[in-house]
Design a binder for these strands. Structure first.
Lengths: 199, 199
DNA sequence: TCAATAGTGTCTCTTAGACAATATTGA
DNA sequence: TCAATATTGTCTAAGAGACACTATTGA
């Protein structure tokens, strides 16, 4: 079971793992209630904290590398400021990379392909405004959300268009009376529409 | 390994398979060059002919049914007039269903969910005009292609809009001088643009 | 008043649905 | 000519990018 976590801030937390024989048996058979539970458990072991966003990417066989191996690959997100995470079991190294670095850096085996596919899927989600709310804080400003999306996508978005698309879909609701104040005009805070406390 | 084949003519060929213990070991380990090869081999065993279109859908564990099982699910297409296909090894029954019947009929275990996901993915492909050319004949009329898409989607398409979208993408090229003649005005035949013989 | 940031308005282009009109065939 | 089918043209609306404009804050 191989886990890649694609994160905000235009960065990717690259998990390089040591893989032993019979890993998929260890991961799944008779140990977890489902594939998702297994992926979450392994990810938590590797980076120390649960991943708030985790989606199946694909399954790959790797006969040239290890004829016995069948990997179910997941992509995940983790806030860059998550506390208490660090390289855990079976992890050789753990490091932040920008998305561009991650997709263009050579990796062993088919890992580069898988990172590419994960980034592609994540960018598709953002393009369709299928936002990973589980990974976002409870409330945030529209500028913060747009910045997050831009970092994942790797290109700037138009502010007006971005907000209009969000409004058309009625995804967000303003948190009445709550603002994030910098030195200048404070920004309205929003939460996921339909969440508790929304009118 | 479970195979569902979604086919033209608004029909689905439903494969109900008998699954024994250690199926995924039999299917994959040490026997096939890749997951795709394994899926193609098993599909061919089951229905007698290779599937011209075969794509990975997802991987599912089934602990409530069989704790040892990990299934990699594929969706496929087969022309309804393919010769020499019939229920093969490990197949209990083989029958054509309309898409609507297939997605609404109750099935054992999680099979209904998987059929639903396969149809959804196939409809997404058609919506984006990512057409399964491998499953289509070498040449065809635009009406035939539109009919195929309508059967998969389950709703009619506007003729003018459909053709404009195809033209914008330059997916097809007319086969010069070739027509399909009924009793009335014959229809221009098209092939995949870039195929041999195209100007 | 000014700088800096938050938020809105307006124009335009692209895409595609709706639907009418034209073209071509054999009878 | 007519029925039936193939093919094209036109109108319009929705979505979204480009970009300028207004609003609000603290200094």
């Amino acid at each position: 079971m191989t886990v890649f976590r694609v994160v905000a801030r235009n960065e990717i937390l690259q998990v390089v793992q040591l893989q032993g024989p019979r890993l998929q048996r260890e991961v799944f058979v008779g140990l977890d209630a489902s594939l998702e539970t297994a992926a979450q458990r392994v990810a938590t072991e590797r980076v120390g904290v649960p991943l708030p966003f985790l989606r199946q990417l694909c399954a790959v066989g790797r006969p040239q590398r290890a004829p016995w191996a069948l990997s179910v690959v997941y992509r995940g997100l983790l806030p860059a400021d998550a506390p208490d995470f660090a390289a855990g079991k079976r992890i050789e190294s753990l490091a932040w990379r920008t998305v561009d670095e991650a997709v263009s850096s050579p990796l062993a085996f088919d890992h580069a392909t898988l990172v590419g596919a994960a980034v592609l899927a994540m960018r598709g989600d953002i393009d369709r405004l299928e936002l990973p709310f589980d990974c976002l804080p409870g409330s945030f400003t529209l500028v913060e959300l747009q910045t997050f999306c831009q970092h994942v996508l790797g290109h700037p978005l138009d502010k007006s268009s971005f907000r209009r698309r969000l409004a058309d879909r009625a995804l967000l609701a303003p948190v009445e009376g709550e603002f994030r104040g910098g030195a200048f005009r404070p920004a309205q805070l929003y939460r996921l529409a339909g969440a508790k406390g929304a009118a």
